[in-house]
Nucleic acid binder design. Structure first.
Lengths: 356, 356
DNA sequence: AGCAATATTTGAATCGATCCAACGAAAGTG
DNA sequence: CACTTTCGTTGGATCGATTCAAATATTGCT
């Protein structure tokens, strides 16, 4: 039908000419109709209609106005991450809420492969960035910073004090999880870890862990081991398996962990996602949670409340973090550096004293 | 730190002057570095660095280049709809996939309140729109069309042949659901409907249904009743309750439907979301599904496969619809008008013959 | 009718880049 | 050495709008 598939070179200036007015007046017809005489206004509108003019092109307006009225959310994962991952979804819900309240839009920017990455960030039309640093964060942060736009990194315990961050106290949160399990009497542990270094999954030695690129992962491990040491557990013998936080690598991790002579009685998982996979995997193996194995997750995603059994976990105020991030960007007063929100241990049915 | 909170008026022209070259050359340094002499290139880059230039502003580039390289997804719901609603999420996953493949970004545009709505659509920086027409679609479609950008309406069985649409055969899908239940022997039904008219929930009479604004809702009802009539059910006595497709109004619907002397043995739900709420509500009432009541949903969202009991439903190729929509927008050849995809009845455990 | 006050309209300047025809300088050729 | 290529650089035109001071038209008042 009407759509010819190609050029639509009808500009404001065209209809101004057609209506016999200056482009200044034509512009006013759309942006401040009340100051234009009715007769003229109608004439211009008629011309616009006749020529198939779709209203002032935001591309043009933008340049003059300066503000895009949208905030960018960037991640190194594929775009579908925003809709699949439970953590991301709760976070996005918080971000959405804050954006709705202020009328801002959301631009999703992905950078799954490295070349696109740079370009996508560099050319994103946004007033600021929220960077998801769950994985592969460092490069993203650098690119975002180069845009010299307001930006906030989420969930990144970066060394770099110059990066505005909204996060949690990973050490304290992890310690709470470990403490809960040691209090229950557990002494044999395994850690389902997030990546310490980009793309590296598998068993990780304690020194490798100390040299982590991802400070968040390292800090959680520190928190875990801090508590385990207190009760005399030899942490050098606790298996640490880094996964890509997906089903496949988490299952590999579990195979390895439970393939040993003395399997753990308790699992410390650095994400609820891994913990939930573990729940399923153990159930398929006829291992009872919490009686054979206790599990404590991390994040506090909604799914953790309705799993079988419901998951004990360290809950982050995820949605709140999203809301704060938007706020930090919109009223970019430069004050919001490095905010740390409290976490909370939620005890549910996936943890209990070890057998016997 | 470095972020002063206000103006950053450093433009390409500024660094050009600082480096003692023309703006043309300065531009080349960033867009085609290979054609400018190394010495000059370094000089310009140094100047940029020194003055805190964040690279060519996409706002400026955009005007010249024309393409935003992002597609807009618009809905009349709040932005969080994209992350909360199961149907929307699967659809967005399909859209994400197609966008990732082509390197395009996604702009989420919401229009929860009417004034913002118009403006948000009119000022969205996108190359085309995908309009979610689940609810409140008509106005959205009109606004999107006025932008004269490529656009596709999803899930809208519009009368208007000039609107490009990707959808399903609602009548046929609904008929399959009803046929399944009548085949099982059911004769007493209730319909959990989506809205027929904007924002109107509650019991709906058959004539009101015929005057629906939302053709999709009406068509599904037509499909249901077509089959029910075939086996002699008096459709005028089948309660039709329109909900807002949320928990609260679905519960009200169920209260009403099961508050009668002769409650139905089978429920036809126009969305899985409602069907899942019904599952829970009935279980809380100690009514067994499928023995006391059978339920057939609509959509085929992932949650329907893992509910208790798993839900019999009419599955749409949701993700595929999303993928096709993106494709239709990107290679806007004007050919993609009104595409209808097949639906499929997935029989699970929520439907069985009525008692006795 | 004459003049001030008010209502409209005009057109140049601006937003921040990219593109491209033209041009000067250095290198290659006979 | 004059003459063509090649390479790099320049600066004006352009993308599509908004803004605003100045110009012009209308209206009100005596």
């Amino acid at each position: 039908m009407a759509s010819p598939g190609n050029p639509r070179p009808v500009r404001l200036a065209d209809i101004a000419k057609a209506a016999g007015v200056s482009h200044g007046t034509a512009s006013n017809v759309f942006s401040r109709p009340e100051i234009v005489r009715e007769e003229v206004r109608e004439r211009v509108k008629a011309a616009a209609e006749a020529m198939g003019y779709g209203g002032p092109d935001p591309k043009g307006r933008l340049l003059r106005a300066g503000k895009v009225n949208a905030i960018g959310v960037a991640t190194a994962e594929p775009l579908s991450y925003f809709f699949d991952d439970p953590f991301a979804r709760v976070m996005m819900a918080g971000i959405s809420q804050a954006c709705d309240a202020t009328g801002a839009g959301i631009s999703l920017v992905s950078a799954a492969n490295n070349e696109q990455l740079a370009w996508n960030i560099q050319s994103a039309l946004v007033d600021g960035f929220i960077v998801f640093c769950i994985e592969g964060g460092s490069r993203l942060v650098q690119l975002a910073r180069e845009r010299k736009l307001p930006f906030v990194a989420l969930d990144l315990a970066s060394e770099d004090g110059s990066v505005a961050t909204i996060g949690i106290d990973n050490v304290a949160g992890a310690a709470m999880a470990a403490r809960h399990l040691t209090d229950l009497g557990h002494r044999r542990f395994a850690v389902l870890a997030l990546e310490f270094v980009d793309g590296r999954t598998g068993l990780v030695s304690p020194d490798q862990a100390q040299n982590a690129v991802y400070a968040g992962t390292r800090d959680r491990l520190t928190g875990y081991f801090q508590e385990l040491s207190r009760v005399g557990v030899d942490t050098t013998r606790v298996p640490i398996y880094a996964t890509a936080n997906d089903v496949a690598s988490t299952k590999s991790a579990l195979e390895t962990i439970f393939g040993t002579a003395e399997p753990p009685t308790a699992i410390l998982a650095m994400s609820d996602r891994m913990a939930l996979v573990a729940l399923e995997w153990l159930s398929a193996r006829k291992l009872n949670v919490p009686n054979d194995v206790s599990i404590v997750g991390f994040d506090g995603v909604p799914e953790a409340a309705v799993s079988e059994p419901p998951l004990t976990t360290v809950a982050q105020p995820i949605a709140e973090m999203g809301r704060l991030a938007v706020k930090a960007i919109l009223d970019n007063d430069g004050t919001t550096n490095r905010r740390q929100l409290p976490v909370e241990l939620i005890v549910r049915a996936s943890s209990a004293p070890p057998r016997g």
